[in-house]
Amino acid sequence: MDRKLKVLISGTGFAGQGHADAFRAAGAEVVGIVGRTEQVTRDVAEKMSIAHFGTDWAAALETCKPDIVSIATPGGAHFDPIRQAIEAGCHVFCDKPMTDNADTAVQLFKLAQDKGVKTAYAASFRYTPSVLHARHLVTSGVIGEPTEIECISHFNLEREIPFGWSHRKKDGGGRLNNNFTHTLSIVASVVGDKILSISGDVRYDLGRAPIVDGVHNFATRRDFIPKDLNDPALKWGQSDVEWSYTVLARIKSPLAENPVSVLFKHGVLVPRFSDDHIVFYGTKGAIYLKGHYGSGQLYLYGADRTWTALPVPPEIAKTVPDVKGETEQCWHYLAREFVRDIQGATVAPYPTFREGCQYQQIIGLIRKNDAWSDVSHLA
């Protein structure tokens, strides 16, 4: 394909602007951007030199006639724009979560299959250099057969962050939608994506959050925390999603005879004592990745029975986009692979609506909180 692929962006905040930069770096042309508010959309379009802007998604699809649409809004606003885009024959790049519930995610997955369009699902922290390095080591047999994995993170997030989409289930909020999707994708990229069984517990432990006007960019929401939380005029919103979870999974890996046991533990409101981390254990060693998405230093535990810090190999480092910010770096990586795939190049497997649909169904099962056995009657 000689011509540049045309991209239409849905969303004007941190993700929308990040997606636009990523597709431009991948060689595509960003021809339009759509947002909720006319003036905000105009300002972003002018800042980013995007020709078409507006608040009418259907009209933008008709005017811009994009090859690709990039969905960068909260999950609760994904279904209709994606459905319309697929019906128009567009390929779809969608940030996580895919939608706000399993049923709509299944519908979009099947529709994309029926229409023959390509999809990308941006549970994309699997593309940090350390995770790519870990995948190389594990698939090379350095730790033997993988046996178990732990993903541990505690954010100590301020409870007073203004009420918004992340607090509401119907908007695609909750930590399973916006944290677990990344860690599950990381694990699947390293040991295999055949998820056999799942069990979990969630806690709706935030309660309420202050309602504050003017919050537009998710990345700067902390700047809007009210200075006086006891102000009687302050209004409050009630959160109806989980802010902590514990999930157990069993994954069939082509690298191991037995299923791999995985623990996902996340508490967004509690303080950490030691580093957040992801650890891959095997029959011959282990790999420790520092950070809640494993994007920090990698350590290998090998035959010498000591932990050794390893640098990212040059052949992996050169594949990582040279941009600031881990989130942006991963968007750039996935957008590049997606564009190359659409253009007919051979690329490695990347997350698609298959994963997005599967993850949304798994999240629905975990949120039921019904995997408990009553032992209160036992002696």
Rank of each mutant, 00 (worst) to 15 (best):
D2C: 01
D2R: 10
R3K: 14
T12D: 02
G18D: 05
A20W: 00
D21S: 15
E29A: 15
V40A: 13
T41P: 12
V44H: 05
A45E: 00
T55D: 01
W57C: 10
K65M: 09
A77F: 13
F79T: 09
F93H: 14
K96R: 11
P97I: 03
M98C: 09
M98S: 06
K110H: 12
A120F: 07
S124R: 12
V131W: 01
L132V: 07
V142E: 13
I149S: 03
H154Q: 11
E160W: 09
I161W: 03
G173V: 06
G173P: 04
N179L: 12
H182V: 05
S185P: 03
S189A: 14
G207H: 02
V212W: 06
R222W: 03
K227Q: 14
L229N: 07
E242K: 09
Y245H: 15
P259A: 11
V260P: 00
K265E: 06
H266P: 00
R272E: 05
F273C: 04
F280E: 01
H292M: 12
S295W: 02
Y299V: 03
W307M: 09
A309D: 10
A309I: 05
P313N: 00
I316P: 08
A317Q: 14
D322I: 04
E328D: 10
Q329F: 04
Y333N: 11
A335S: 14
F338A: 11
D341G: 10
F353Q: 02
G356R: 03
Q360H: 05
Q361A: 14
Q361L: 04
R367D: 13
S373V: 15
D374F: 03
S376V: 05
